[in-house]
Amino acid sequence: MSRTLLRLSVAAILFSFSCLLQAAEPSYTIAVIPKGTTHEFWKSINAGAKKAEQELKAKGTKIDIIWKGPLREDDRDQQIQLVENFMTRRVSSMVLAPLDDKALIRPVENAMNAGVPVVIMDSGLKTEKYVSFVATDNYKGGQLAGEEMGRQLGGKGNVILLRYAVGSASTEAREAGFVDALKKSPNIKLISSDQHAGATRELAYQVSQNLLNRFKHEVNGIFCPCEPPTIAMTKALRELGLAGGKVKMIGFDSGSQSVTDLKNGDVQALVVQNPLLMGYLGVMTAVKNLRGEKVEHRIDTGVALITRENMDQPEMKELLTPPIDKYLK
């Protein structure tokens, strides 16, 4: 008799627990907001987010990922509106790659205050009021590029740094890392480091052509801190007959064009991040936080230097051409 009672009460407790669990595990809607949608880098982030969605769904979590970004990589205002709109729509959580390290502070803080937790990915935000920062150590990435430049040039030569855009924290950290690493080789001179490529490929291409016309006789090495200027500068070098190693070209990120350029020897090295892991960890961190688990304030997703020599190693191959199609149909 007392045994049945015990059994019943245990059953009742288990039942109420499972009810509680179900109450604690409602359906999550997570908005993932990239900086832009036209670059392959963001496709990989999208694939990573989808991977997280599929894994969570397989474990029985009800989750919905909304992928929406401004179409131009420097449209801060549009991104602010996106954040505000998702806040009003009351999504469960947001994963955001801020276009600007200051302009997005207020919208993010507003969302946090309104009870919509925000995970920052890819690019920093100059506030502490967010759940977690999931990103590449961009400064380290720039340092890797700078050290490789020193190695490629044998510690001597003239170098151009074509910057990306004003206010983009991730690329500015890479540029700083690159410049600092170059200081270790006193015989390497930065002959141009004050030009910005701008957000579209056409602008990056124009600036590259113009800069090369000025410096083509003295430049030995060039570094570009992200995909559009890397592709544009390599195209301009190729047209001048300076590609293929005459000028050492080091780029950042792995679009399909950059990978082809690396294979052909027009690009000597690419610093590559792990955007798939970034998208994946971004969503996972947001869900962990929603479940009330503790999350790290800073999560490093790793960075690697890929040259023609090591590009065929399996782990490098996966970084160069992330298995996007597996997750995006």
Binding site: T38, L71, E73, T200, R201, E202
Partner: peptide, 15 residues
Amino acid sequence: MQFSRLTQGDPTVAN
């Protein structure tokens, strides 16, 4: 001409 310059169609170009 814009296509020929970039050898790609870019919906965000020429903003």
